[in-house]
């Protein structure tokens, strides 16, 4: 699903060069649920941005769903993001002037779906996160956990094969965080590949697989199977 080989990312200013990723190697298989942990400044978010085609990189290769994305144009990257990747952000990133329906509608419009198709997808995804009855509410009328659920609905509405979550529970209390995590696991169970960046080791342990990023490299890779998955197995 995702293969990075020797990926490099350098941030330059007039005075200093910062190697955010150095020879970053990672493979994520279809249906995986990978939690990415590591200290602040280790390169987690840079990895996420490159994985989500939000940023370019200097060296190495990156294949997403079998397609080399190293030299795509901005337009091609936008299209690929829209079709293959769903994003979940720490601060939810909902558009405050749009109600839930219109928020979930945003990526679907860029896909060019017709009105009926969009409506069906919006209703289904909001139904999935349990907010179908609040479609006309504004984000400010919801709790943090509900807002993150809307963001998940928005990420899922386009049926992406790959979900990228950047600290999805970072702004939530423990109860809400667990609820969102449960939702992510349910989504993963349907076959959607998930890569989640988090600081929370407890949440990370609930993923199928953990990777640890330090100094821009995957320094430790361990496969963790949650108790629940072990029980199922």
């Amino acid at each position: 699903m995702l293969t990075m080989h020797n990926v490099k990312k350098i941030f330059r200013t007039d005075l200093v060069e910062t190697h955010a990723l150095r020879d970053f190697n990672l493979q994520v298989d279809e249906g995986d649920f990978v939690a990415v942990t590591g200290p602040s400044g280790s390169g987690k978010t840079t990895f996420l941005n490159i994985a989500g085609l939000l940023e370019t990189f200097e060296g190495g290769t990156y294949e997403l769903d079998g397609k080399n994305v190293s030299n795509l144009s901005d337009k091609q990257r936008s299209q690929l993001r829209n079709e293959k990747i769903g994003f979940i952000f720490q601060s939810f990133n909902l558009i405050p002037d749009l109600d839930l329906f219109d928020n979930v509608d945003v990526p679907l419009r860029y896909r060019g779906f017709n009105s009926a198709e969009r409506k069906k997808r919006i209703e289904n995804s909001l139904e999935l996160v349990g907010l179908a009855n609040r479609m006309k509410h504004l984000p400010s009328q919801l709790s943090g956990g509900q807002q993150q659920r809307v963001a998940i609905a928005r990420a899922l509405a386009g049926s992406p094969r790959f979900l990228l979550a950047d600290e999805p529970t970072g702004n939530l209390d423990t109860k809400m965080a667990l609820s969102v995590m449960e939702l992510l696991k349910e989504i993963n169970d349907t076959g959607t590949t998930i890569v989640m960046v988090t600081h929370d080791q407890d949440l990370a342990k609930q993923a199928k697989r953990n990777i640890y990023v330090r100094d821009g490299q995957v320094s430790e890779l361990s496969e963790v199977v949650s108790l629940e998955h072990a029980a199922n197995a």
Partner: peptide, 16 residues
């Protein structure tokens, strides 16, 4: 700005 960045992340091209 943040909203525009989010739209871009969700698949909006520059022309969009």
């Amino acid at each position: 700005k943040k909203q525009i960045g989010t739209r871009r992340a969700l698949g909006a091209s520059q022309s969009a």
